[in-house]
């Protein structure tokens, strides 16, 4: 009983402390900050992307060009998380594939084979046109992953895994990482203007494709792990 009382009072203490803390932050956000406007850096990026003729998406100009190192290291964090998952995937025994079958549904499998190419093309389109419109490498890679999700739901994980072979995916991952790193190093060696003039829009597409492939392979690895260890849905 003593213990119970203690834990209850600790709980109320936690609640009070957190509510007070966040209440203070909220009041600060409401009254300390004046009316917001575009931040100084943001205004600079907006201005610059007006000058550059072949980038019209200002968001992409931030994460793809001016702050590419941020993006690169965040990609590395994502790769590390995926690496942890693949390592555990090798350690843990997976359930035997024969024991669980996907639910047979003609509607789902027929619509999947019809929809998957459309989703894939849409993802590739987003990845290629990041500098022109909304989308970009992250959204493109994730939408490609959604296509895989659809295939895994409709046709079963085994067949999907056979279509996207694991070893070639791993090599592709290294290739993409090498590509992203080399783009970053080239960007550090040469001033961005020289670099852009030499390669034109090509380098933008290179950046985009490397981001999209990295995200796509990562989501594929995560999906593959969960489907392998938890069976079909």
């Amino acid at each position: 009983m003593e213990m119970g009382k203690y834990s209850v009072s600790m709980k109320t203490l936690y609640v009070v402390v957190i509510v007070v803390l966040f209440g203070a932050i909220t009041i600060g956000a409401l009254f300390m900050v004046g009316d917001s406007e575009v931040s100084r850096l943001g205004a600079v990026y907006l201005e610059r992307s007006q000058e550059i003729s072949n980038i019209s998406n200002a968001v992409f100009s931030v994460y793809g060009m001016y702050r590419f190192y941020d993006t690169l290291f965040e990609l590395l964090i994502f790769s590390t998380a995926v690496l942890g998952i693949t390592i555990f995937s090798d350690l843990e025994p997976s359930i035997d594939s024969g024991s669980r079958k996907p639910v047979e549904s003609h509607v789902v499998s027929a619509s999947a084979s019809f929809l998957y190419p459309i989703i894939a093309v849409f993802g590739i389109y987003l990845a290629f046109s990041a500098h022109l419109g909304p989308g970009g490498g992250f959204a493109g890679g994730v939408i490609g992953g959604t296509g895989i999700l659809l295939l895994a739901l409709a046709k079963g994980a085994e067949e999907t895994a056979r279509n996207f072979r694991e070893d070639s995916m791993k090599q592709l991952e290294y290739l993409v990482l090498f590509l992203a790193l080399s783009v970053a190093i080239l960007g550090a060696l040469y001033p961005i203007k020289v670099y852009r003039d030499a390669l034109g829009t090509g380098v933008i597409t290179l950046v985009n494709i490397s981001i999209a492939m990295k995200v796509f392979i990562g989501t594929w690895a995560i999906l593959h792990f969960f489907v392998k260890h938890r069976g079909e849905v």
Binding site: V38, S61, Y63, I77, F78
Partner: peptide, 26 residues
């Protein structure tokens, strides 16, 4: 126009959140 800087910064963090979530679920 909307400020592009915070949008670009959180865009990467959405994907990372997903990776970290998958790892913690594991």
């Amino acid at each position: 126009y909307a400020d592009p800087l915070p949008q670009a910064l959180v865009l990467t963090s959405i994907v990372i959140n997903f990776g970290v979530l998958a790892l913690s679920l594991l």
